[in-house]
């Protein structure tokens, strides 16, 4: 257990990314730095198009940085000279969900370990059913196709599929964005429970400050493009987190500290959007 906890320290050092497909250089990420401890639940809050996903894609190994570097447990994951390489140590759960619709829930979940030949099919199935059961009784849905599940169940299955690989970092890219308030709140409960069961480093990207404060140990507020870390905030709320914390003095005090900053960036992003459209 201790060993697991001591894996997954993420170090983002002056990360920068310039997109230049048509000669018009767009600076998505600039001088973006953060030190994330192993097992820490980190939320990154920022307006749409601030470069949150760019950062996440670099960590996941989908895209290259144009400056700076990102290290996982001291090993360089991303830098201008590093060939981007996705791997099972850092699996993403996407905003719109990316379960393979042609595979059953069980086939989806065992895909990683069987593909990597970490586990045989039977062992992978046993492990998958166990994890699905622990993560809210999802084992009964094993033989169903993702399309037959609610979006909340799909998202949880997707988290289990990521966790099956024993990743060092779990990357969540606005996974609850499209959900209504009630489902979202239920998903927060599930995610907190899952994180308590499997204490991995979590990088949770969102534009929702309340969500970030409720879930995370540390919240970073990102500036609008070019994305940088604007503020870092330690959330010293006890775990397990409960709903009454949302109206507690400590929570409201934390929110007070950053809400103006988040709003300022959102306003800037909005005005730029207006200008670009005008």
């Amino acid at each position: 257990m201790n060993d697991v906890l001591h894996q997954g320290a993420l170090s983002i050092r002056q990360a920068g990314k310039i997109y230049d497909p048509a000669g018009a250089a767009v600076v998505a990420l600039e001088d973006c730095s953060a030190e994330i401890r192993a097992g820490e639940f980190v939320a990154i809050v920022g307006p749409s198009g601030c470069g949150k996903s760019t950062l996440l894609n670099a960590i996941a190994g989908f895209d290259r940085l144009t400056s700076g570097e990102i290290l996982l447990d001291g090993v360089t994951l991303a830098s201008p000279g590093t060939e981007p390489r996705p791997g099972p140590q850092r699996v993403v759960v996407f905003q719109h969900g990316a379960l393979f619709p042609w595979m059953t829930v069980l086939e989806n979940v065992i895909y990683g370990p069987t593909r990597q030949r970490v586990l045989g099919a039977d062992a992978a199935r046993a492990k998958a059913l166990d994890m699905l059961r622990r993560c809210g009784g999802l084992d009964t849905a094993g033989q169903r196709y993702p399309g037959q599940l609610s979006s909340g169940m799909q998202r949880r299955v997707e988290i289990v599929r990521a966790l099956m690989n024993e990743p060092k970092v779990l990357l969540l890219d606005e996974p609850f964005r499209a959900m209504d308030t009630v489902s979202k709140s239920a998903m927060h409960r599930h995610l907190l429970d899952i994180h308590a069961l499997y204490p991995k480093t979590v990088l949770f990207i969102t534009h929702d400050l309340e969500e970030a404060l409720f879930l995370a140990d540390t919240v970073y507020v990102m500036t609008t493009r070019p994305g940088r870390m604007k503020t870092m905030l330690r959330v010293n709320l006890a775990r397990p987190r409960t709903l009454d914390m949302l109206v507690s003095h400590e929570y409201l005090e934390l929110k007070r500290q950053v809400v103006a900053g988040v709003h300022e960036e959102a306003q800037k992003a909005f005005e730029r959007g207006e200008r670009e459209l005008a």
Partner: peptide, 8 residues
């Protein structure tokens, strides 16, 4: 992307 992450 995910297939690659998962080792395919």
């Amino acid at each position: 992307w995910l297939a690659r992450s998962l080792g395919a």
